[in-house]
Simulated assay, not measured.
Amino acid sequence: MYKVKSFSVFIFLSMLISIFTGIRLPDVGRDTEAYIEYFHDSSIDDGFYDRFEPGFSLLMQLLSKAGLSVEVFFTCVAFIITVTYLYIFKRTYKHCFLDKNPSTSIITIFFSLLLFSSWYIASTTNGLRQGLALVFLYLSLLEFFYNSHKLKFVFLFVIATLFHYSSILILPFLALHYLRFRFVFIIWVLVGLGFALGVNELGVKLISETFGLPIYEYVKYYSLEKGSEELGGGMYEGFITSFFIYTILWPLILLFVLKVKTPIKEKMINTENVYILLKIYFSLSLVYFVMGFGPFSNRYALFSWMLVPIMQIVIFRLSIRLQTEKIIPLFFLFSSLVFFLYLRLDWIRFIK
């Protein structure tokens, strides 16, 4: 009962964070001003507003034509992403740890990691469509990899796709579910090397030309579609060493932690399910390794980066006795709140 009540506190805290995110200034988030304009356009559009994917357009149009403000729309988007991600964390924890339900200290640390995460603020202030899609995509992958519930997977995957079509890119990598972890790891390493060496780009180009698909052109010339005057004019072009290292860092740390055997750890975790979590992360990061050769490669990296806070809490849970140190989680939460409000949402400008 106590754990249920403590989780409810974080739902309430999620609402507060979502409200603060919703009333942010127009210059917080690179695309906030554009979304404000889109929201206004959807309110006066006579028919269905088809500027975006159907799910996102429907959500925007329902709120705008109901006479609600764009701040309410931003708040709703942030709240859906935050609460759904909290639920994903709780489900993942139940699979990976034998105590099933995270303590208040663990939830506190996790929520703090979420507020510190660059990918959370990006998903709630800039990449709204992909942020909404990813939380439903993660839910669908949990059903597929852990429970083999294909109908639930399809239902949640369709919802994810209705918010952002890029969710479809994960489909070829679902086959990893049926392979032993050792083979999945080898595939991940080889495809990662192929990305670093430029081999994957050649492979996507060959497949596109062979089957007459526009995949290569869409990825390679995305900067032109976004208004750049020349090829290569977009941000984050192709392979970026820091992006690549960040992507492979967290699963490698988790693998190292898993390999260090201790009697306490063996009584704490379901090792097989932690390896399944790594499979999910590998599947998501393969999207980046295969499709990240063009500009704005971070939009493909976000597939796996958004999962990093959950990876981090698993690492911390296996490395630190969070249960007994109450002051540390509270300090961590306070620091993350200050960081999120004053730096991420730029409240610091009001005290200068």
Rank of each mutant, 00 (worst) to 15 (best):
T92A: 11
V83F: 07
K150G: 13
L162A: 11
I106Y: 06
N147L: 14
L176V: 04
A160S: 15
F153Y: 15
V77K: 07
A175R: 12
L134V: 07
A160T: 11
L169D: 06
L169M: 12
G192N: 05
I121S: 03
I88C: 10
F74T: 05
V199Y: 01
F111S: 03
I81K: 05
S123I: 10
L162R: 02
P172V: 02
I121T: 06
G127P: 10
K150R: 13
V70Q: 14
F163L: 10
V184E: 01
L151E: 12
E143S: 12
L169A: 08
F183P: 05
I107C: 00
C96M: 04
H164C: 12
K94C: 08
N147G: 11
L86K: 02
F79E: 07
I121W: 05
F110I: 06
V72R: 13
T104H: 10
A122L: 15
K150C: 13
H177G: 03
K152A: 09
S103T: 14
K152S: 12
T82C: 09
Y178H: 08
I186C: 07
I107G: 01
A175S: 15
D99W: 01
P172L: 06
S140Q: 08
N126Q: 15
T104G: 04
V154G: 08
F116L: 09
P102S: 08
I121D: 01
L98W: 11
V199L: 00
E143Y: 13
K94A: 13
S148H: 14
V189L: 14
P102R: 06
F111C: 09
L142T: 05
F111L: 04
V191W: 00
V72F: 13
F155M: 14
T104R: 10
I168E: 08
L141P: 02
F73L: 09
F195Q: 06
L197F: 13
F181E: 04
